[in-house]
């Protein structure tokens, strides 16, 4: 098991007027090779939860084990925990600080105490992994475009060679192309065997990428399962302030109106396939009738 959370609760500012319970009895296991989508309305505890996954926060009660290491145990070396679970915060380009991209990428591996040659190897590997060329190594990270800076920041975490990568809204604030690039990149990392936890507001992204979806509401895990199953329950999701992917809502509405669609789609591509198949079937039905146009036009 990669990450195990057992009955985790977390309270911010205990004993003050600003006391706030962010997590309530969360039990969750992240298995190797999974792609977990973590969704929930603002304030549902997503960010607090992901910070437990690499020991940045320690549970007020309950236990978190990362590859067997208990993060609350004072003997646990948290640097080792953070090496195995890479955490990419929202707008990670805001944490860039070094004079060159090379130095920026070397920061994590150097903190791990690796030999200089190994650090250099990882710097080059990480840069390639995010699809950037080596000509960027000598550039200042502050001179890069938004999408490039985001990818350099991501590479800065990847250079630590984590087994699990946790990303908080990695595509937020990017243009459609930059968004596409980042998501493709994450998909590739997963294909190459990395375990991924993706926090996102975008149901579309989660539907497309995740193999499992966990829904948080007011600090509790309220749903946990395959995206296809979960996004069928869009009434429940709506009650939690979340919307199922547009594609799932569309095929459900069509099915309710009597269209011959399976109603299983959760991504746009799948919805297109279902609708075109239904249209093709309808055309085949009509042809023998002798070209009479009409019926329910406009549906």
């Amino acid at each position: 098991m990669s990450i195990e959370l057992e009955h985790v609760s977390y309270v911010y500012n205990p004993g003050t007027p600003a006391q706030w319970q962010a997590l309530r009895d969360v039990s969750l296991t992240i298995r190797p090779g999974e792609f977990v989508g973590l969704i929930g309305a603002t304030g549902s505890g997503k960010s607090t939860l992901v910070q437990h996954m690499n020991g940045l926060l320690r549970p007020t009660s309950g236990r978190v084990r990362v590859f067997g290491m208990d993060t609350s145990d004072p003997r646990t070396d948290l640097t080792r925990v953070r090496q195995r679970v890479g955490l990419v915060f929202q707008y990670p380009e805001h944490q860039l600080f070094a004079a060159t991209v090379a130095e920026e990428l070397a920061y994590g591996p150097t903190n791990l105490g690796l030999a200089p040659e190994e650090v250099q190897r990882r710097v080059r590997w990480a840069l390639r992994a995010v699809g950037l060329g080596e000509e960027l190594l000598t550039r200042s990270p502050f001179s890069l475009s938004g999408g490039q800076a985001r990818r350099v920041a991501l590479a800065g975490v990847l250079a630590m060679r984590p087994d699990v990568l946790v990303l908080d809204e990695p595509a937020a604030g990017l243009d459609p192309l930059g968004r596409r690039e980042i998501l493709d990149l994450i998909r590739n990392l997963h294909r190459e065997g990395m375990t991924i936890v993706l926090v996102s507001h975008s149901m579309e992204d989660v539907a497309e990428l995740a193999t499992r979806v966990v829904v948080l509401d007011q600090g509790r895990v309220v749903m946990d399962g395959p995206p296809r199953e979960l996004f069928r329950r869009h009434r429940e999701l709506a009650a939690l302030g979340l919307a199922a992917p547009v594609a799932a809502q569309l095929v459900d509405a069509l099915k309710a109106r009597g269209w011959p669609v399976p109603g299983q789609a959760v991504t746009i591509r799948e919805a297109v396939a279902e609708v075109t198949a239904a249209l093709a079937a309808r055309r085949r039905e009509r042809r023998p009738e002798g070209g009479r146009e009409g019926g329910r036009a406009g549906v």
Binding site: R82, L87, F89
Partner: peptide, 26 residues
């Protein structure tokens, strides 16, 4: 920012004033 750099293995308690300054740069 502190959390983000800690996630990259930053150590803030280091020996020596110069090393301390360097540790704070990120």
């Amino acid at each position: 920012i502190l959390r983000a750099q800690q996630a990259r293995g930053a150590r803030l308690r280091v020996r020596g004033p110069l090393a301390q300054m360097q540790a704070l740069l990120p």
